[in-house]
Nucleic acid binder design. Structure first.
Length: 263
DNA sequence: ATGTCGGCCTTTGGCCGA
């Protein structure tokens, strides 16, 4: 087989695309990803500023929803959407949290906005866990079929204690509960590689700083935005970036972009 | 516990979710 073409994949929870359009445009110019997955676009597809991105050479695939959630993919390489909801949830997911597609070489590329799990009491937390189990089943099926898979997005999981600043979350928060972390590990046990941790095994790298309580100036952050790669893609992993500078911008999102570079 | 955001309706302030 000829060597695969280089590929740069990224994820960014923008906390409203209508508030962050200019941030995203500026960042695309600078970072030049092939695909950028967005989360919390907080609008329906008709309100998504697709034309502004098309003018830059990025095609938009949008899974929109009014008010909350919403995901999208901005692509400058062919990306054929195959799923607009996570297969296998007990009921079809009414929330816009999932987009799956294929690249020209058959690589499966998925963008997710995993439920936070802190609202709605125990039912809200149960929804998070069910979502994680359905994701595990979906990825297991793809891997069993021999597919190479990249999953990027806001996982709303701090995998280990190193992934949050002391006191950044109350004990028992859904992002660090043992049940949550166990289900994240279950994704890794499928053979998926946490790309950031693979290249920076011991560094404190945060991707989110709350707007509240001076979290950013105090560097009281979390690592909750992740890129998981199947083994064949991990073999090509040439670099990762967590673009912390974006958090210092005027009217910044509370999350920053995470980028993986495949050779 | 929360000093902040964003979106929406109950609409010029309050609510939810994060």
């Amino acid at each position: 087989m000829p060597p695969a073409a280089p590929l740069r994949l990224a994820t960014w929870n923008v906390n409203s695309i209508r508030q962050r359009e200019h941030h995203v445009r500026r960042w695309l110019e600078r970072a030049q990803p092939d695909i950028l997955f967005l989360q919390e676009i907080k609008c329906e597809a008709t309100q998504f500023p697709a034309d502004a991105f098309a003018a830059m050479g990025y095609h938009a695939e949008v899974v929109g929803q009014k008010t909350y959630n919403g995901v999208a993919a901005l692509c400058r390489v062919p990306f054929t959407v195959t799923h607009r909801a996570l297969p296998g949830l007990a009921d079809d997911d009414a929330q816009a949290r999932y987009i799956e597609g294929e690249l020209a070489d058959g690589t499966v590329t998925i963008g997710i906005y995993l439920p936070n799990g802190n609202s709605g009491g125990e039912a809200g937390f149960a929804y998070k866990l069910a979502w994680m189990e359905a994701l595990r089943a979906r990825l297991a099926a793809l891997l069993a079929a021999g597919r190479e898979v990249a999953v990027l997005g806001d996982f709303n999981v701090c995998p280990e204690d190193i992934d949050l600043a002391a006191g950044a979350l109350p004990p028992g928060d859904a992002l660090v509960r043992p049940e949550t972390r166990a289900r994240f590990r279950a994704l890794l046990w499928l053979g998926l590689i946490d790309a950031v941790r693979a290249l920076y095994p011991t560094e404190r790298l945060f991707t989110f700083w709350d707007y509240q309580a001076g979290a950013w100036p105090r560097d009281s952050g979390l690592r909750i935005d992740h890129a998981l790669l199947s083994a064949g893609l991990a073999e090509r992993l040439a670099g990762v970036a967590v673009d912390k500078d974006e958090r210092a911008m005027e009217k910044a999102s509370d999350h920053v972009p995470v980028v993986v570079e495949l050779a």
